[in-house]
Amino acid sequence: MTVVSPEFAEELKEYGDDTALQCFNCGTCVAICPLVDDSFPRRLIRYVQIGARERILASGRDLWKCLHCGLCSRTCPRQADPGEIILGLKRYVLAAWREE
């Protein structure tokens, strides 16, 4: 069961920019991402928005496919900065792995 936790975005502030709530899920980042994955990075940003902590941790490894190329951030119509959100999630997941 996925627990929804709207305050999760607040928790993530320690790890990076607080821009996930700017995203309105248009999918531009998915279309432009060189990984050509059908839902990256939008799916993970959606998880941040609803606070799906467990889902983020469960799919944590996918974060490191991100090349940090910045094309998604450059083209985001909402200035949600998806590339920096992904970088913040890498920090969050790495910290969680190291605490295990």
């Binding site: 060189p34 990984l35 490191w64 496919k65 090349l67 940090h68 190329c69 094309l71 450059r74 083209t75």
Partner: peptide, 24 residues
Amino acid sequence: PFTSCCGGPAESVSPALALTVGRR
């Protein structure tokens, strides 16, 4: 500002992914 990535940054965790993006 809209350049495409060479794929190189993925080389440390997935050389296959780096190569796929690089070829593209």
